[in-house]
Simulated scan of single mutants.
Amino acid sequence: MYEAHDLTLRLQGKTLLDGVHLVVKPGAVTVVVGPNGAGKSSLLKLLAGERHPTSGRVTLDGTDIHALAPARLARRRAVLPQAAEVAFAFSVAEVVGIGLGAHGTARAEAAIGDLLARVDLPGFGGRRYESLSGGERQRVHLARVLGQLAAGETGAPGYLLLDEPTSSLDLSHQLLVLRLAREHAAEGGGVLAVLHDLNLAAMIADHLVLLAAGRVLAEGPPAQVLTDDVLAAGFGVRVRVSRVPAGPFILPQSVEDA
Score class of each variant (00 low, 15 high):
Gly101Phe: 05
Val119Ala: 06
Gly104Tyr: 00
Ala74Cys: 12
Glu109Trp: 00
Glu94Lys: 01
Gln82Gly: 08
Gly125Val: 00
Ser91Glu: 13
Ile112Met: 08
Ala106Cys: 07
Leu115Phe: 04
Gly62Glu: 11
Tyr129His: 10
Glu85Lys: 03
Gly104Ser: 10
Ala78Asn: 13
His66Cys: 06
Arg75Ile: 04
Ser131Thr: 15
Ala117Tyr: 00
Thr63Ala: 15
Ile65Pro: 05
Val92Met: 07
Gly97Pro: 04
Phe124Cys: 03
Gly99Thr: 04
Gly62Ser: 08
Gly62Asn: 06
Glu85Phe: 13
Glu130Gly: 07
Pro70Ser: 12
Val96Cys: 04
Arg127His: 05
Gly101Lys: 02
Gly101Ser: 07
Ala83Gly: 10
Ala87Glu: 14
Pro70Tyr: 10
Leu80Cys: 08
Arg72Thr: 15
Gly126His: 02
Ala71Thr: 13
Arg72Glu: 15
Ala111Glu: 15
Ala67Glu: 14
Ala67Trp: 01
Ala106Arg: 14
Leu116Glu: 11
Ala117Pro: 01
His103Leu: 06
Asp61Glu: 15
Asp61Asn: 14
Ala71Gly: 08
Leu80Gln: 12
Val96Phe: 03
Gln82Val: 01
Leu115Trp: 01
Tyr129Glu: 03
Leu80Lys: 04
Arg77Cys: 07
Leu121Cys: 04
Phe90Met: 09
Leu115Gly: 02
Ala102Ile: 00
Ala102Thr: 08
Phe90Cys: 07
Ala108Asp: 08
Ala87Asp: 13
Ile98Pro: 01
Leu60Glu: 09
Gly113Gln: 05
Arg72Pro: 02
Leu73Trp: 10
Asp64Trp: 05
Ala71Asp: 15
Glu130Val: 07
Glu94Arg: 02
Leu100Gln: 03
Ala84Pro: 00
Gly104Met: 09
Leu132Met: 01
Val86Met: 13
Ser131Met: 11
Ala87Met: 10
Leu73Glu: 10
Arg107Asp: 14
Ala83Thr: 13
Leu115Ile: 03
Glu130Asn: 07
Arg128Trp: 05
Gly104Arg: 02
Gln82Cys: 11
Ala106Gln: 12
Ile98Phe: 09
Ala110Thr: 09
Ala71Trp: 05
Gly113Asn: 08
Val119Cys: 09
Ala69Ser: 14
Val79Met: 10
Arg127Gly: 02
Ala117Gly: 06
Glu94Asn: 02
Ala93Ile: 05
Ala106Gly: 10
Arg127Asp: 05
Glu130Ala: 14
Gly99Ser: 08
Pro70Gly: 12
Phe124Gly: 00
Arg76Lys: 13
Pro122Arg: 08
Gly123Met: 07
Ala74Leu: 11
Ala69Asn: 14
Arg128Ser: 12
Ala84Lys: 03
Arg118His: 04
Val119Ser: 04
Ala89Val: 02
Arg75Asp: 13
Gly126Trp: 01
Thr105Lys: 00
Glu94Ser: 03
Leu73Ser: 11
Ala69Thr: 05
